[in-house]
Design a protein around this nucleic acid. Structure first.
Length: 426
RNA sequence: GGAGAGGUGCCGGAGUGGUCGAUCGGGCUUGACUCGAAAUCAAGUGUACUCUUACGGGUACCGUGGGUUCGAAUCCCACCCUCUCCGCCA
């Protein structure tokens, strides 16, 4: 959520940002509605506060009069206070309504893209930040897609998943299962080496937590809900891990905070279409290792690049062809100020698959989380939050299987050998 | 699931209707003393919203939400959470 203060003080920047997100002049008018609602809120607040102060003063007087035994005077004041109480109640009601209106308006405004974010309407306008310079692996014309390879080598089974749960819940088995475990282990170890503290959080969260990272109130439909207990299955480790610092004021010297976490991710995911969602390309439950950082605003963009480089190293070690995209305003997530996407080349599907998204949210998340730091002067400021996948498994697995298929079997990249215990799937 | 105890500031812990945003102790910060440290002494030490050019004010917050009252941390109701014991269980 954007701060009203920022809209008031730096409206021009916000307007430009929203244009980058292809907001029309008419849509942008909402900023004026927000400022108007905020003016109203402040005026009402002043009125209420003044009346409350007056009442407080009178009540103290009543106490004194009672102590002095001046009952009649006290009674007189009592009725005066009682009258005011009614007008306070009415004002408070209005004030509450205005606040809610203001908040509902704010919820509709996405984060303001960083000035380096390119304009653009869709995925086609994303800038290739770093392309794959080397040739793609050459596969025989009869190369199999990962879903066929999975059948051939008995790595995972979608039908069994349907039997147990439903579509989009694969059952991994044998070397397929072990490959999952190896990847998770590999990612975690690499992240820990890079200075991230490992967190193993709960996989279900309460409403406050879901609200903290913005899953609620809008994106309720994308999560699985345990209604009876008021709990939500996490769509990403970002949710519990970022919330670790909800309502916390971190001393400046403790920044940056860096976490990594493996969790399964649960996504209800509305749309499903054609071959693009076949196999592991899109599932309801998948495994992901996430990295999260809490940064000083002055160095959050430096941190973003550090995270990008870190993910690059992971991709390199996996020996997979990849490219990095700088997302354009139109393709960026609602909460992000700047996002880099990592895509891996799938040789058999002949297309790029998104495997990681690394973003700086600036204060968009921390405002709602009330995640702040205290500087050397004791002043309190919102921290910047960043996160990225390092990495999401399914499409990595898809690319790994497809690109590395040989007549003898599927070759496992060297970096994984010590975790898999095997060098080939055959 | 049953019984009991309890939820107050960074921590411990007072406070059972009026001047309590909250005694006190610890911690932390600053200053004094010291070559330095410890000890000691002194001062300071919540957050949000809001008014003011500023100095400095105002309001709210004692688990959450309601209620009683001129006035609530304090009384009443509901809910949530934590701890102890019992039951069940990996």
């Amino acid at each position: 959520m954007l701060q009203v203060k920022r809209i008031r003080e730096d409206k021009k920047t916000i307007v430009n940002g929203l244009r980058k997100r292809n907001w029309t002049a008419r849509q942008i008018k909402i900023l004026d509605d927000i400022l108007k609602a905020d003016d109203e809120r402040r005026a009402l607040q002043k009125q209420v506060d003044d009346l409350l102060a007056e009442n407080k003063r009178l009540s103290a007087q009543i106490g004194q009069l009672m102590a002095q035994g001046k009952r009649d005077e006290a009674e007189q004041l009592k009725s005066q206070v009682a009258t005011q109480k009614e007008s306070i109640r009415q004002l408070e009601e209005r004030s509450e309504a205005v606040k809610q209106h203001l908040e509902s308006l704010l919820y509709t405004v996405p984060n303001c893209p960083h000035r380096s974010v390119p304009k653009g309407k869709s995925t086609e306008d994303n800038k290739v930040f770093r392309d794959w310079a080397k040739p793609f692996p050459t596969l025989p014309p009869d190369a199999l897609a990962h879903w066929d390879l999975a059948k051939k080598y008995n790595l995972f089974d979608f039908e069994l998943g349907v039997k147990l749960t439903g579509a989009g819940f694969p059952v991994y088995r044998g070397k397929g299962a072990k490959l999952q475990r190896a990847l998770i282990q590999f990612f975690l170890e690499e992240n820990i080496k890079a200075g991230y503290e490992e967190i193993l959080p709960p996989h279900l969260v309460n409403e406050d937590t879901a609200r903290g990272t913005g899953q609620l109130p809008d994106k309720e439909g994308q999560m699985y809900v345990c209604e009876r207990d008021g709990l939500y299955l996490i769509p990403t480790a970002e949710v519990p891990v970022t919330n670790l610092l909800r309502d916390v004021i971190v001393p400046e010297k403790d920044l940056p905070v860096a976490y990594t976490a493996y969790t399964p991710c649960f996504r209800r995911e509305a749309g499903a279409w054609g071959a693009h969602v076949r196999g592991l390309n899109r599932v309801h439950q998948f495994d992901k290792v996430e990295i999260v950082r809490i940064e000083h605003p002055d160095r959050s963009y430096k941190a973003l690049m550090e995270m990008v480089r870190h993910v690059q190293r992971l991709m390199g070690k996996l020996e997979l062809p990849y490219r990095i995209l700088l997302l354009c305003g139109g393709d960026m997530g609602f909460t992000s100020a700047k996002t880099f996407d990592f895509e891996v080349w799938s040789g058999a599907q002949q297309r790029w698959l998104e495997v990681s998204s690394v973003s700086n949210f600036e204060t968009f998340q921390s405002y709602r989380l009330q995640l702040r730091y205290r500087d050397a002067d004791g002043k309190i400021h919102l921290a910047h939050t960043l996160n990225g996948s390092a990495l999401a498994l399914p499409r990595i697995v898809a690319a790994l299987l497809e690109n590395n298929q040989t007549p003898e079997g599927i070759r496992i990249p060297k970096a994984l050998h010590k975790y898999t215990g095997f060098k080939m799937i055959s």
